[in-house]
Computed example of a mutant assay.
Amino acid sequence: MIRFENFASYNQYVGLKEPLDDDIDIGYYQPLRMRATSDPVLIDFYRISIKINLVYSNTPDATPITAVFFNSPNLANGWDIAPLPTYTGMYLQLSKKIIAENRFLFKNYLDYGQHEALYLTETEVEEIRTVFELMTPYYNSKKKNNTVLLSYVNVLVSLVEAFYKRQFSTDPKQYNRILTDFQQHLHEYYRQPVKQLPTVQYFADKLGLSANYLGDIIKHLTNKSALENIHDFVVIKAKELLEIKKELNSTEVAYELGFEYPNYFAKFFKKQVNLTPRQYRQSLINK
């Protein structure tokens, strides 16, 4: 599998213009110059691609789609466009270095990993096009103003993340299934002995998603973060154990739930319930 370490080698392979910068590269697709098919390749940078009127070779009679596609380091990606590339659009490429140095500018979207395309409305395409038109002069300028350029990059990434949240609402069947699967795995977690507390990453791995992508879906559908949902469930299980398994003391309950340190369980429970585990048990007796 071919691995591309930089923009220049990848652009040459795909048929895009030579980049002007090693950390930020923006441009417009020119269909007649682009490679129509490719086996999966790896890139060592981030890539946001806006493709307008795209048709795949395996569905040549399908309605063309307009969408945002995302590639991140170490995720393989191939393509087969029919019969030749005819789509237009724009692309933004960001090095790992520029993101690491400016992490405060970037949203969860850049950690979404591999996920479904973001389908754009005409209005959204125009918003993105406008940002590219504003960004391009700063990119092409020999006296590059990186502060302004990075600000526009931040606006673009923020727009894409906002559009994803719009898509979460417009296709509820797909995303409700993810929520249901998350909740199902959460219930199954404590049906076996555990050695640690459940984590967002654990459930993301179970569902084949990145932690940030799963977290944004859960937050959008429940108005609580994935971690808050997990904590709510841990509290329910803690209450059940304190009520039903009276032979277990608080330390044993903590270990049953996967807490490494019993003192942390006591603090966690007090924060969530406003009672210590012992006080909660006493409240049940008083009732």
Rank of each mutant, 00 (worst) to 15 (best):
E228P: 00
N229H: 06
N229W: 06
I230G: 01
D232L: 06
D232S: 04
F233W: 05
V235H: 03
I236F: 08
K237F: 07
A238R: 00
K239F: 08
K239G: 06
E240V: 11
E240Q: 12
L242T: 07
E243N: 13
K245H: 15
K245P: 01
K245D: 15
E247N: 09
E247F: 14
E247D: 12
E247S: 13
L248N: 03
L248W: 12
L248V: 12
T251H: 04
T251C: 05
E252G: 07
V253F: 08
V253P: 04
V253G: 11
Y255H: 12
Y255M: 03
E256L: 10
G258K: 05
G258H: 03
F259E: 04
E260A: 11
Y261H: 14
P262T: 07
N263M: 14
Y264H: 08
Y264S: 06
F265G: 03
F265Y: 11
A266G: 03
F268G: 05
F268I: 02
F268W: 04
F268H: 01
F269I: 04
F269E: 02
K270V: 03
K270D: 11
K271C: 02
K271M: 08
V273K: 07
N274L: 13
T276N: 11
P277I: 04
Q279W: 03
Q279L: 11
Y280N: 00
R281S: 08
S283T: 10
S283A: 07
S283F: 13
I285F: 06
I285D: 06
I285N: 05
I285P: 00
I285S: 06
